[in-house]
Simulated scan of single mutants.
Amino acid sequence: MKKLGWMALVAGALSVAGCGTDPLESSRARPVMEDYATLVYENYTDAVAKARVLQTAVDAFVADPTEAKLTAARTAWLEARPAYGQSEVFRFYGGPIDDEDTGPEGRINAWPLDEAYIDAVEGAPEAGIINATSEYPTLSEELLISLNERDGETNIATGYHAIEFLLWGQDRSVTGPGNRPASDFVDGGTAPNAARRRQYLKLATGLLVKDLESVKTQWTPDSNNYAKLFRSQEPKEALLQVLTGMGSLSGAELSGERMTVAYDNKDQEDEHSCFSDNTKADLYANALGIQNAYLGRYGTADRHGLDELVAVVDPELDREMKQRLQASLDAIQAIPGPFDQAILGADNAEGRQKVKVAIDALRAQTETLADVATALGITLNLE
C-alpha cells in the first residue's frame, strides 16, 4: 500500500452491530481471538528470523562483495518474503505494524519505489542518495528514516524494496529479474561510491530487522503490550479487527492496489516486487495470510479459527468461505510468471486473462468475507 490514508476511513466505517442477539457465545469466540494473537506472534517471529538470515547474508556480501555472495543475499531476500507477506493480514486496523503515530510499516514494505531516489539508474548515473555525497556526507539509520517518503510517496529509502533494488538493480529483462553486478559494490568497480552503496545496503537491512522486531515485541505473550490489550477486548471488538485486516488486504489492497492497478496500467513500475520478479510469490503469500487468519493456522500449527465460529452460525457460508480462499490461491498460482509480462498484451492474452481471474476471485472472496462478518453480528464496510 502506498499510503494508509484510507485506512482511517475504513476503520471509521466499521461498527459492531448494535441490535439483535449476539449469535456467538463468549466461550466460543474468546479461544479464537486468543489463538489469533498467538498466530500473529508466530508469524512475526518467523518474519524476524528470516530477516536476520537476510542480514547475515548481506553482512557477508558487504564484507566480501563477490557474485556468489550476492546470489546468497538475493536468495535470503526471496526466502524472507513469504513470512512477511503472510503477516500483512495483521494490518489495516491500527495495530503495532501500522499505528498512525508509531507503526513502522511505511519503513518496512512501502512501494512503489523510485529507484533514482536511492541510486544511479539508466540515464541518470549520478542520481540518488548514495551518490549525493555533498548533500548527505554521512549515511546513518537516522538519515534513511528521515528520508523515507520525504516529499513524496515514491521516495522510498528503506525496507524490503529498497534492499531489493540494491541487490538486483533495475529490471530491464523480459524473461527475468534485474541483474546488478557485484562489482557495483567493489571499490574501483563498475559504479562510483561503492563503499556508500555497501553501507546503505547494510544500514537498510539492519533497520528492517529492528522494525520487524519492534512489531514482534508488541505481540509477545505475557507482556504488557498490544497483545495484552487485544486479548482484553470483548471478543466481537477483537474479531472486528481480525475481519478488518482480512477484508482490507483481500479487497482494496491485494485485488486493488497490488493487482488491478498493474493490470490496468500494464506498467512494471506498478508491480509489487519489480526488481526481483517476486511479485507472484508476494501475492500468493498475501492470499495465504488471509486463509491463515480464517482457519487459525500458521505453517503446521492449526488452532481455533473464524471458521469454527462461522460453522456454528452458517455451515454453508463456512464452506463457501473456504472455497473462496482456496480459489484465490489457485488463481494466483495459475498466473504465468513473471508477473510484469503477464499484465502485458491484449485482454485476451493468456497472462492477462489469468491475472483477471485472480482479481475477480479476490473480489468475490472479499464479498464473502463481508457475509461472514454479518453472520457473526458484525457490520463490515470495505472499499
Rank of each mutant, 00 (worst) to 15 (best):
A80Y: 00
G289L: 01
L144M: 09
D267Y: 05
L283F: 01
D314N: 13
F92D: 05
L329K: 15
K216W: 00
N278G: 15
A127C: 07
A252M: 13
A49Q: 09
E350H: 13
D101P: 03
D184K: 08
L376G: 00
Q218N: 05
A252E: 14
E149D: 14
A349N: 12
D222L: 10
K228Q: 14
D35Y: 04
I130Y: 02
G351D: 03
A127V: 04
Y200E: 02
L212K: 04
I97D: 10
A227H: 04
L239Q: 08
L70G: 00
W6T: 14
Y200V: 01
A238M: 03
H304G: 13
T21H: 08
D119E: 07
Y294R: 10
L249S: 01
Q233P: 05
A83T: 02
V242D: 08
E105P: 04
G152N: 09
V313E: 06
N225V: 00
R231G: 11
V215L: 00
V89S: 09
V62N: 08
S232Y: 03
D318Y: 01
G5Q: 13
D277F: 07
L369D: 05
R198G: 08
A110R: 11
F61Q: 04
E234D: 11
Q353E: 14
D264N: 14
A375W: 03
E135D: 11
G296N: 03
E153Q: 15
Q268P: 15
D222N: 15
L167K: 03
N109M: 02
A342V: 02
P192L: 06
A373W: 00
L376D: 02
V58D: 02
Q199S: 13
A252R: 13
V313C: 08
D347H: 12
A110I: 06
N265K: 13
L14M: 08
M7K: 15
R324H: 00
H304Q: 15
S140W: 09
E383R: 15
V312R: 12
E271Y: 05
W168F: 13
A60H: 06
T56D: 14
E253V: 07
E67V: 05
G12F: 08
M7H: 12
Q353G: 14
A13S: 09
N155T: 12
N265E: 11
S87H: 03
L143R: 11
L325G: 00
D222Q: 13
K210N: 10
T190K: 14
P23R: 07
G256L: 01
D277V: 09
K3G: 09
T66D: 02
R28D: 15
Q218Y: 00
E213D: 13
R197N: 02
Q170W: 05
A334Q: 13
A358C: 06
W219C: 01
E164P: 03
E316C: 00
A238Y: 04
V62W: 10
Y263R: 06
A349C: 04
E42P: 08
D46S: 10
Y44C: 03
N179R: 08
P221Q: 02
A63Q: 11
R52G: 07
D46Y: 00
L376A: 01
E164H: 05
E135Q: 11
V261M: 10
L9K: 14
Q199K: 15
I108N: 03
T374Q: 08
D302N: 14
T45S: 13
L229C: 10
L144C: 07
I118W: 02
A49K: 12
R28Q: 09
V357E: 12
K216G: 01
V372W: 00
C274I: 10
V48I: 07
A361C: 05
T366W: 06
F339M: 12
K356M: 11
D184I: 07
